[in-house]
Design a protein around this nucleic acid. Structure first.
Lengths: 232, 232
DNA sequence: CGACGCTTTGACACAACTCAACAACCGTGG
DNA sequence: CCACGGTTGTTGAGTTGTGTCAAAGCGTCG
C-alpha cells in the first residue's frame, strides 16, 4: 500500500464513539448506513423472524470491522446490536465510496477480508445444520477462543465472554434452557466451564474431538475418511 | 465498463466444458483452483463432517458463477460437486489475477456480486437455525423459485428441479425420511408438489405465509412486529 | 427381466422444546 | 448495611419434532 493510501485510510476514521449496550447500530433494511470498527466491546449481527425469533449470524469482537461491504449495497441485510457497552469508530459511507474510486485496488483488498467473514458464516451454517447441541456449543467455544486469541483477548485457554444464555441460544439455534443443560454437560464432562462471563477450556483436545473442530491452520488437512454418501 | 474491460472479460472464458453429474469440481482445502460459470446443469457447494455428514451451502444454477472469490485466497473452504450433467465455462486463476491488477475496479464489482451470495447464505442460516422442518422446506422452495425465475427457468409457479430427497436433506439439515414426510405435508396441504423432478407451487401466498418469506423486492419492508426479546 | 436408485410407509427412540417454578446474583435505594 | 427488584441461571416434568431402523413400492435402464 502506498503512503497516500495509508494516510487516506487513517483519515477515514472518525473519533471513537462510546455506545451503550443493547444499542441497535444498524437496522435490517436500513439504507446508507455507516461502517464501524470495534475498538472495545462485543456486538452481534442478526435477523429477526415474523414470529419474534432471532438468529444471530456473528459476533463482532474488538478489532473487527462491520458493515463495510453493505455500504456498497443499497441496504443492509441484517441488523447489528451491541451486546456490551462499546467504543466504536464510525466510518462514513460517502468517504469510503470516494476511496473506492480513488484507490480501486482496495476493492480487492476488501474482497479478501470479507472472504474470511463468509467462511465463518459457512462454518456456522454447518454447525447449526449438522451438529447436535453439545457439538455445536463446543465448536462455538473453540471458534471464539481462536478468534480472541488472535487479538490477544484469550490466553491460557481462558477468555472473557459477555454473552448470556439467551444470546447464546439465538446464535446456536437452540432454546435458552437447552443451552443451559448443554453448558452443564460440558462442565460435568470437564471439557469447559462458562461462569461469571468467563469461559475456561479445561480439556481442549477433548473439546475439539467432540466438536469435530479443525483449527484454522489445520483446516487444510481435509477430513474425509471414506464414506461416500449416495446422492452427491 | 470500458470496451477494453469487456473484451478482456470475454477473453477470460475458455471453451464450454461438459462434465458428468456427481463430478467433484472443487475439493475442500484444494489450492489454486479455477472458477466456473454454469451454462447449464446444477451443482452444490458443501462441507463434509468427520462423521460422514454433509451440509450443503448453496446450489449454483445455470447463470451462476462460482469460486471467483476463493481464487484470491490460497484454498477453497468448501467443496463443489455437480448434481446433474452440466456445461461449465472454466476461468483460469492466473488470468483473473492479472485482470485484477489491470482493472482494479473489477475488485469492487466482484465485491458487490459476492455480497448477494453472502446474503443467501445468511438466509439459509436463519432457516436452519430458527425455522422448523416444514417452514424451512417451504422457504427453500420459494427461494429457488425466485432465483430460477430471474434467469427464465421458472414460469407459472413451476420449475424443473433435479435434486433428490437425499440432497434436499443435506441442504436443509434434516434426515431424508423427514424431508419425505414434509414434502408429503406440503402436498396434502395443497401448497406445493415435488414430483418427477418438477416443483409446482399451488398456493404461493399460503407457502409464503408458512415460510415467513420476504420476496427480494419486499425485503425492504422490515418484519419486526413488536416482541422485543429480553437479552439483545 | 432383474437390478438399482429413489421414494414412501410404519413403529419406535431420543433430542430438543415448552411450561412452570425456583435459586443465585447484582446493582439500587432506603 | 440490608432489603429489594430485576435479571440471569438452574431444575424438573411432560410434550413434540425429528431421527433411526427396517422394509416395501416404484421407475428406469441395461
Amino acid at each position: 500500500m502506498s503512503k497516500r493510501e495509508l494516510s487516506y485510510l487513517t483519515d477515514l476514521q472518525s473519533k471513537p464513539l462510546r455506545v451503550d449496550r443493547g444499542k441497535e447500530l444498524v437496522h435490517e433494511g436500513e439504507a446508507g448506513q455507516t461502517a464501524y470498527i470495534f475498538q472495545s466491546g462485543w456486538a452481534c449481527s442478526f435477523k429477526l423472524l415474523p414470529d419474534g425469533g432471532r438468529q444471530i449470524i456473528s459476533f463482532p469482537v474488538p478489532g473487527d470491522c462491520v458493515g463495510l461491504r453493505s455500504m456498497l449495497l443499497r441496504t443492509s441485510d441484517h441488523s447489528l446490536s451491541t451486546v456490551t457497552e462499546a467504543t466504536i469508530i464510525p466510518i462514513q459511507a460517502a468517504r469510503v465510496k470516494h476511496m473506492f474510486n480513488e484507490f480501486p485496488y482496495l476493492g480487492t483488498a476488501l474482497l479478501w477480508a470479507t472472504s474470511r467473514d463468509e467462511a465463518m458464516i459457512v462454518e456456522h451454517l454447518v454447525s447449526v445444520g449438522r451438529r447436535n447441541a453439545i457439538e455445536r456449543t463446543a465448536h462455538f467455544i473453540l471458534e471464539l477462543h481462536d478468534r480472541l486469541e488472535l487479538v490477544g483477548l484469550a490466553a491460557d485457554h481462558k477468555f472473557h465472554c459477555p454473552l448470556n444464555q439467551y444470546v447464546l441460544a439465538d446464535a446456536l439455534g437452540l432454546s435458552t434452557i437447552h443451552v443451559n443443560r448443554v453448558l452443564r454437560q460440558l462442565r460435568t464432562r470437564e471439557l469447559a466451564t462458562f461462569k461469571a462471563h468467563e469461559i475456561t477450556i479445561h480439556n481442549i483436545a477433548g473439546l475439539k474431538a467432540l466438536a469435530g473442530y479443525a483449527s484454522p491452520e489445520e483446516s487444510l488437512v481435509v477430513v474425509r475418511d471414506g464414506i461416500e454418501r449416495d446422492g452427491f
